[in-house]
Amino acid sequence: MFEARLIQGSLLKKLVDAIKELCTEVNWDISNSGINMQSMDGSHVCLVAFNLRADGFDHFRCDRPLTLGINLGNLAKILKCSGSNDIITMKADDNGDTLTLMFESEKQDRITDVDLKLMSIESEHLGIPDQDYSAETSMPSSEYQRIVRDLSSIGDTVNISATKEGIKFSAMGDIGTANITLRQTSSADKEEENVKIEMKEPVLLTFALRYLNNFAKATPLSSTVQVFLTKDLPVQVNYNIQDLGYVKYYLAPKIEE
């Protein structure tokens, strides 16, 4: 038996919206420590992972580990039936073939329950090695969203470089070129509005903007985002979900042949 109640149900809706375009059919691994998912996108270019900790839920019960095969598009359709202030409860039996979702309005005067059919999904787990990052940047998630969106109107790929000058995003396309450089800041009113850059060594990597743009769908989940760059390795883009867990995206670089 699995049962989890999330007071801030809108977080589940935002999480599914943040990953559903990259991954359509995924396995959720449920254990008494929480809910985990890892999935590659259809073209196997990026990896998406999330963790929702059991202690982030109002109530969490999992008698034995379960794997729930979920079509995220269908789950997103169901979550559209929930109100933005609803409390969401998820339930599944150990050998059941459905996930029950219950939406309770704030005043608890309206209750919706929906059964989502589960699927059997074959997926392989990739091991993510501990990486020694060349550069780690923390910035407002709205800033990241704007950079990748603005550069997408210039080109399809972006060069990201970290130097002592800051972190530079460069795109080149038929209409011209664009560079956006972010420098470390410390003057913002709120700590999360600052840009923090920790650079161990200069690094330059090339990525497809289409995916970096897709990662920005997680913007509503967190006010900040961390971007980890490592020489010749995938970029890691992390959104921490306050008091609940995280969603992480990894994108393989484009490399000169």
Binding site: M40, H44, V45, C46, L47, E124, H125, L126, G127, I128, P129, T157, T206, A208, L233, P234, Y250, L251, A252, P253, K254, I255, E256, E257
Partner: peptide, 14 residues
């Protein structure tokens, strides 16, 4: 020309 790498080039199955 730069080529898009697959994620499995960097991370291996567990």
């Amino acid at each position: 020309m730069s080529a898009q790498k697959k994620i499995s080039t960097f991370f291996s199955p567990k």
